[in-house]
């Protein structure tokens, strides 16, 4: 029974499933449509709550119509609605009506990362004083353990400016979308924070997250981005709470926060 019921819910052109009726032999068309509407409106609404900036950028009505297409293609895999929409950015890349909005998929990636960070495990970030307690000659050997909330999204577009202005209800019409920005998403305290990263910092943090030693990671970042400001990047890294631990030679001798 439930296979047919579920299939009809997601496909409005299918008839009311066999055996589903109204009281005293009444028709069940509009009655079954209540379930169809609940499912569609509920899932589209949930998607809009996860991607409020995308919704604002395209408008509520358009977003709803677009969400219904996505929902039919990719219904949630579990009852954990806050995990829904992992494939939404990829969907936007292929959804022809928004093909002119080149920045839209990366904005969606940033919004998805924001919610992942919101629900990530609680761990104290690395004490900002930790690096100061490391002997200068040992700094290059340090490796880092990433905080569960940390996400980095590199984009060819001004996703940090668009995201921040939209979520703060500011006008976004003055933002030039075609400037590359990297977003750093972290949760250093009570709330999720989103920062733009200067050139090179994204390269450095991604290398450190992958377990590369600080000396090597900094060298690579500098080679790729000659104006890279290492002290500023390290200060931002500590302030944002990107990591939870550093160790001279992981895992022994850990200098935890």
């Amino acid at each position: 029974m439930q296979a047919g019921f579920a299939a009809s819910l997601l496909a409005p052109d299918l008839p009311v499933p066999a055996g589903v009726v109204g009281p005293r032999g009444k028709k069940a068309g509009k009655r079954f449509a209540v379930y169809r509407n609940n499912v569609a409106v509920g899932l589209a609404g949930a998607l809009g709550d996860i991607f409020p900036v995308v919704r604002k950028l395209v408008g509520d009505g358009f977003f709803r119509a677009m969400a219904l297409v996505y929902v039919a293609q990719e219904p949630p895999g579990s009852p954990l609605m806050f995990e829904y929409g992992q494939g939404f950015a990829a969907f936007l890349e292929d959804f022809e009506p928004v093909s002119q909005l080149l920045y839209l998929p990366d904005v969606a990636r940033l919004e998805r990362a924001w919610l992942d960070a919101f629900h990530a495990a609680d761990v104290e970030p690395l004490d900002p004083g930790a690096l100061g307690r490391v002997a200068p000659e040992a700094l290059a050997e340090l490796t880092f353990t990433v905080h569960p909330a940390t996400r980095i999204i590199d984009s060819d577009f001004a996703i940090v400016s668009i995201f921040s202005a939209s979520r703060e209800d500011q006008d976004i019409s003055g933002i030039r979308p075609r400037q590359a920005q990297s977003a750093l998403v972290t949760r250093p305290g009570d709330w999720v924070e989103v920062r733009g990263l200067p050139p090179g910092a994204s390269t450095l943090f991604k290398a450190l997250i992958a377990g590369v030693r600080l000396g090597e990671a900094a060298g690579d970042a500098l080679a790729a981005h000659p104006q890279f400001d290492l002290p500023a990047a390290l200060a931002a890294m500590l302030e944002a709470g990107v990591f939870i631990r550093c160790a001279a030679r992981a895992p022994a001798g850990s200098l935890s926060a």
Partner: peptide, 17 residues
């Protein structure tokens, strides 16, 4: 009620016979 099937999670409380 039921809310999950092979198609995924349907996000509504659906009826049983």
């Amino acid at each position: 009620a039921w809310s999950s099937h092979d198609a995924g999670y349907l996000n509504d409380l659906l009826p049983v016979p």
